[in-house]
Design a protein around this nucleic acid. Structure first.
Lengths: 347, 347
DNA sequence: TTGTAAGCGTTATCAG
DNA sequence: CTGATAACGCTTACAA
């Protein structure tokens, strides 16, 4: 009776069960599942057959425990509301998987939750942490570094000693945007984005402004419209600010993210009845899914999520192998995606 | 020397370290971290102080191993490209967390990967599986059920014995759409979506058609435009099909998902130069982020992701406690979100 | 309330 | 190549 109950619920077969069925020792089973272990083909097939019949799989946690390692990597991101960060997730999971790691997703939306997430990740003995742009404060990151847990950051300032950083080439992106806007014949420029507090925003802004310096036909200074977030709503608000001014309105606008650009364009079109790109040319940054929709067809600077993810996992793994290796900063190339909002290239 | 190296890399403090520092036994440490264990306040604070100093956290995997349970739940979803499924993720993670579970995200995009994901999840000794609508085939689900691993499905047919299902009220949603389109004065109706192969699509379609039966002013049958996916592209293609026909074009269209609706609307507006809602009224289903953007302002049937997630976790946990409990089907209410694409309510 | 000892499912070590 | 034995970090009888 008791045995039957056990059979019923203990659905997990153990190495011992397999060993018994195959008529070998537990060690033999272990070896059969260890690539490159010294075991004869005969016993291996014997074990594998028994394992198949019992539906046995090695218990990764038990294996990790004895090997003193972990197969978890914390991915702390500041919200699934941001399409770009979501887009980064799949390739990140992919490359982590290639190294035998499993991502543990941590939503860092509230500040409370964020402290709790640290505890959880520690409880799971994570092998490393990946922090994507946005909310997670630096203090949190240094908590990990202090515990000698490898940290890799994506699209953030390299402010933390001992943590690697992988960034898109914001500088090149900002210059591309400027160049493209110049080609379209714009003469009055504006930047919209979080260029004060946000690292990426600042870099994109600086490069944009810099590339516009000394342009002969330019009218007035480049208007800098700072936003508090990188959201659609921020883009709408920026349009209100920029188009309600008494001076001439800009005709070439670079938005720090696609979501901002979308909000800006929608406000320009539906609230101010102006046309994009005819009246105002707009360039975004990220190349999220929305950018390709027919209602927008946003010209934008595309981040290469695949490469971003690959390098991030790579630096993280390198630091796992040697925690005291010097911190790296890797820059991933961006590319310009031509659609409609930047207007035609004029003589 | 050897000791120093150990100190350097073995950054994880163990219960033994804490015990030593606090001057108590390992069991005392364990008890201090077990809610409701019999331990004196004095020793507990002693332990906690030592733990604090060493940055100790209980190793959840070791704990789970000895307690014969797992804190992982597999969430197998058919791709982060679908905004609705992404929207479901955060609340799912939230409610799982409330029960002490951690989601393991499995991307089920290719068929190859999907078989591999089964292995991985088994290796982690998951306590249960949540399958969201879409790709993951039923055969995979039954693999889990056969191993007596609890399975909960979201927005899928209740075809699998021993697996619980949580659905949005597609029936009510389809009727809402019909009613709203009738109110807007439409007389020629069409449904666009995967109503043949897809469970949700079929249910929404049936309810829509049914609610339109016997409508006096109706012109012709409800046109059923089947799509192969629930994507933006499918919506665009559907518009090509529907608007290129020689018969009169529909003026009241219900799309099975918001992404389809977006594609349909964009094609109608930009390829056929017709107006939404003036020429064609459109209603969607899901209420994804895009639906609220000013360029669309899509009127749609909103799914309640919060409740969907809550119930899903609830049925899963119930089945964990008693695997042989009869399978449940729970239906979560939907609500209509009024925006612009359904047009004004006419006489 | 406490400490001691056994055991969870693995793999590493060391004989044979 | 194979099998016994110890160990990983933890919880939980059991005894004190």
């Amino acid at each position: 009776m008791n045995d039957k109950e056990k059979d019923k619920d203990k659905s997990w077969a153990t190495a011992e069960d397999v060993a018994k069925l195959a008529g070998v020792s537990r060690s033999a089973v272990s070896r059969a599942f260890t690539p490159g272990a010294s075991i004869s083909g005969k016993t291996k097939t014997l074990v594998m057959q028994a394992a198949e019949r019992l539906g046995y799989q090695v218990d990764i946690n038990a294996r990790n425990m004895i090997q003193g390692r972990s197969s978890f990597v914390g991915v702390v991101t500041s919200g699934l509301a941001n399409p770009f960060r979501v887009k980064l997730l799949a390739p990140l999971a992919h490359y982590l998987g290639e190294h035998g790691f499993l991502p543990i997703l941590m939503n860092a939306d509230d500040a409370d939750q964020i402290a709790h997430s640290l505890q959880i990740l520690l409880s799971y003995r994570i092998a490393g942490v990946i922090m994507t742009s946005g909310a997670p404060p630096l203090a949190l990151a240094s908590e990990y570094v202090n515990r000698r847990i490898p940290v890799a950051m994506v699209n953030r300032a390299a402010e933390l000693d001992g943590a690697d950083v992988v960034n898109s080439d914001n500088d090149a992106g900002g210059r591309m945007a400027a160049q493209r806007l110049i080609q379209s014949g714009a003469t009055r420029f504006a930047f919209v984005g979080p260029h004060i507090s946000n690292f990426s925003g600042k870099a994109r802004c600086d490069a944009f402004v810099d590339a516009l310096k000394g342009l002969p036909r330019r009218k007035g200074d480049v208007e800098l419209c700072n936003t508090s977030t990188d959201s659609y709503e921020s883009g709408q608000q920026a349009a209100n600010t920029l188009l309600n001014r008494s001076r001439g309105i800009p005709d070439g606008v670079f938005c720090a993210t696609d979501m901002i650009a979308l909000g800006f364009i929608d406000a320009v079109r539906h609230r101010f009845q102006k046309r994009v790109p005819e009246d105002i040319r707009v360039v975004g940054f990220d190349d999220i899914q929305h950018a390709g929709l027919d209602s927008y067809r946003l010209s934008t600077v595309a981040q290469n999520v695949q490469e971003l993810a690959r390098h991030t996992v790579q630096v993280l793994v390198e630091r796992m192998n040697d925690f005291d290796t010097p911190a790296q900063v890797r820059v991933v190339p961006v590319s310009f995606v031509e659609r409609d909002t930047a207007g035609p290239i004029s003589g």
